[in-house]
Amino acid sequence: MNKVRVLYHDNCFDGVSSAAVFSRFYKGHVDPGAVIEYEGLTHKAGQQIGDELFGEGENVIVDFKYSASDRLTWWFDHHESAFLSAEDEGHFRHDTSGKKFHDPSYKSCTKYIASVVQNTFDCPLPDLQELIYWADIIDGAQFLDAKTAVELKEPAMRLMLVIEASHSSELIHKIIRELQNKTLGEVMEDAEVRSTFEKLYALHFDSIEIMRGATKCTDGVIEFDVSKYDLDGYNKFIPYYLFPDSVYSVGVSRSAVRAKVSVGTNPWTKHERRYNLAKLCEQYGGGGHSVVAAISFKPTELDKARAAAREIAQTLRNDLKEGRG
């Protein structure tokens, strides 16, 4: 009976779904009696993934940056900015374990894991297709429109709100376990999950009004600063819901563990996407995907976060002006 610790991207639908899909694969293909525990990872300024995060048995990271530690057994990620250093990337490139995988062409880590375990380990997961589908929709921002992303009508969208905004690791780990064998609708019917959703749903509409008062859009670039509010887990599609003709958004928020600059491309813009936001944020110590990225600062570095946000917004405005010229 193996002991396994799964480290996943915390407060993220794709991170939670990735943990669930990997766990089903591991118990179905590697060790049915495995004891699996979970630990969420949050991007922080100057972050290193140290050995203190790993357990005594096998260790897994899904939907988060690579670690060159010899204690890491499995790794799956789809972020363009997946490595903290060139040395880490070199370590990964020379790995011969056959248990570490990276492909930034996938819109979600969940779908990537499902593809790898089916094609490499002959372990299809047909009963998890609903979860895999929605993780790809949510993390890839493949909704029909911003209204669908913000109004939260589907069970998957309601579960997304709970996962992104809940501060209870016990509840998130419960959701990971239930997702392995239940439909999204069944998970939402759990009394604790439903109660948490109902509380957060009311706050969700409050956050829309807060964002409405805190956002402005100039020359196609949305800017907002909600650092004085408890909105670290706000719905990232609200800015585009408020400004459907925008191209980019740049926002500042703050929690107990970080000040954060979030940079995104409007998924529904008809404007050509010319800027790689991962590369742009890497200049400030952040990263992510080409169309959505972020930078983490220490909670006390709010002024630095605001300065970076202003610079990035101006860079994007200049790029749009050049494109129109």
Score class of each variant (00 low, 15 high):
residue 3 K to I: 05
residue 6 V to R: 07
residue 7 L to Q: 02
residue 14 D to W: 01
residue 15 G to N: 07
residue 24 R to M: 10
residue 27 K to V: 11
residue 30 V to E: 07
residue 32 P to W: 13
residue 38 Y to D: 06
residue 39 E to L: 14
residue 42 T to W: 01
residue 43 H to R: 14
residue 46 G to P: 03
residue 48 Q to E: 13
residue 51 D to H: 05
residue 61 I to W: 10
residue 63 D to G: 04
residue 64 F to E: 00
residue 64 F to N: 01
residue 72 L to C: 06
residue 73 T to F: 01
residue 73 T to C: 06
residue 75 W to F: 12
residue 77 D to G: 06
residue 77 D to P: 02
residue 78 H to R: 00
residue 79 H to P: 01
residue 85 S to L: 09
residue 88 D to T: 10
residue 89 E to G: 05
residue 89 E to L: 05
residue 90 G to S: 10
residue 92 F to V: 03
residue 105 S to G: 05
residue 109 C to I: 02
residue 115 S to N: 12
residue 117 V to N: 05
residue 120 T to L: 11
residue 123 C to R: 00
residue 124 P to I: 03
residue 125 L to G: 00
residue 128 L to F: 10
residue 129 Q to A: 10
residue 130 E to G: 09
residue 131 L to M: 09
residue 131 L to W: 01
residue 134 W to Q: 07
residue 134 W to P: 04
residue 136 D to K: 10
residue 140 G to W: 05
residue 143 F to L: 08
residue 145 D to V: 04
residue 152 L to H: 04
residue 161 L to P: 03
residue 166 S to Y: 02
residue 171 L to F: 07
residue 176 I to R: 07
residue 176 I to D: 03
residue 178 E to H: 15
residue 179 L to W: 13
residue 183 T to S: 15
residue 185 G to P: 06
residue 188 M to W: 06
residue 190 D to P: 09
residue 194 R to W: 15
residue 195 S to P: 03
residue 195 S to H: 15
residue 198 E to H: 13
residue 198 E to G: 07
residue 202 A to P: 00
residue 203 L to C: 11
residue 205 F to P: 05
residue 208 I to S: 09
residue 216 K to G: 13
residue 216 K to P: 01
residue 218 T to A: 11
residue 220 G to R: 12
residue 221 V to K: 09
residue 222 I to V: 15
residue 229 Y to W: 07
residue 231 L to W: 01
residue 234 Y to A: 07
residue 234 Y to I: 08
residue 256 A to K: 14
residue 257 V to K: 15
residue 264 G to D: 04
residue 265 T to P: 01
residue 267 P to M: 11
residue 268 W to T: 11
residue 269 T to F: 11
residue 276 N to P: 01
residue 278 A to C: 14
residue 279 K to D: 02
residue 279 K to Q: 08
residue 279 K to S: 04
residue 279 K to F: 11
residue 284 Y to S: 02
residue 291 V to I: 10
residue 295 I to A: 05
residue 297 F to M: 05
residue 299 P to L: 08
residue 301 E to R: 13
residue 301 E to Q: 14
residue 301 E to V: 04
residue 306 R to N: 03
residue 306 R to S: 03
residue 309 A to W: 00
residue 317 R to P: 02
residue 319 D to N: 12
residue 321 K to V: 12
residue 323 G to L: 07
residue 323 G to Q: 12
residue 325 G to D: 10
